[in-house]
Design a protein around this nucleic acid. Structure first.
Lengths: 157, 157
DNA sequence: CTTTCTTGTTTTGTGTACAAATGATTTCAG
DNA sequence: CTGAAATCATTTGTACACAAAACAAGAAAG
């Protein structure tokens, strides 16, 4: 019930506080803008990607095509996924026979991942779709704006 | 990148995908860039926000301060959260006594939300922190770049 | 007034996302 | 060679995120 917030009398207000309170608008915050933009992209992705693939599943498949054979943790690193997250993604893709998992013969810790035939086909089949999804997400921007957005996002990552 | 979309059934593989296959790099896709940038922001938020508040919980609290009294669904709309998502967020905030919920006397469907004293205090106390978090997220950008990024994100939302 | 439409809430189910802890294995330093 | 450190995988727990369905209550139309 109590807030440990009381200030000593006579002590000056926190300098940043007043200004921040006056200016802080949720809809202008970078976190909110990022979340909104991402939401729209995911919505486009979901409605366009015919097979039931999520953005992260697609990322894992595409990246694995380049890296295979590849350990689970390494695929996670390359797709910016936590170990627990990549495990779930891999498990679901393996259950759908898009990915094959096998123990590494030289390093017993590792789980070696490869695309199945079906997985390779799914990637090849959906590359044009994925391209169109990126295109639609950026459809309101000029080529120069697209390049600028990509650069700015990279700069804050 | 042109995929002249003639999808005749029985055609084995789309040949238009050749160009896309050659160009498609995961790390350059807008979805991946958005996800990465958002991840970094959330990491900054989590490490800086002393009280255990998430980005969405913070969004709900800040927005509710402006809108209260306000129905659950409306708060969800204003913070870009799904009905199921906002319910979870509100439930957790109510359990922590930051939000008060009460049935609407004039519309029995509605759940009226208000901030508790503690909730008001938490918002006031953390506004400077939230400001600093946005600042740190954008710290690698010039003022012009920040404005540009915000505008571009809004344009694709 | 009653049928229909709309709105607000809740629940279920699936899928990220990440912190933290555990255990197994490999590598490395002394 | 051996103990310490690093790496890989798994598990647990919490918290979004959203589709879809179910239900109650208000509003609109006839």
């Amino acid at each position: 019930m109590q807030n440990g917030d009381q200030k000593l009398p006579g002590q000056p207000e926190r300098q940043a506080s007043k200004a921040a309170e006056a200016t802080y608008k949720l809809a202008e915050q970078i976190g909110y803008l990022l979340r909104q933009a991402n939401q729209r992209h995911v919505a486009i992705f979901t409605s366009r990607m015919n097979e039931k693939l999520t953005t992260t599943q697609w990322a894992a498949l595409v990246k694995l095509r380049d890296l295979q054979p590849c350990s689970q943790v390494n695929l996670g690193r390359e797709t910016a996924m936590d170990v627990a997250t990549i495990k779930g993604v891999v498990d679901r893709l393996a259950k759908r026979n898009l990915i094959r998992t096998a123990p590494d013969t030289t390093d017993a810790r590792r789980l070696v991942l490869t695309l199945t035939e079906e997985g390779e086909a799914a990637v090849a089949r959906n590359l044009p779709v994925a391209h169109d999804i990126s295109e639609e997400t950026l459809s309101t921007l000029s080529p120069a704006e697209r390049a600028m957005l990509a650069e700015l996002l990279r700069k804050i990552s």
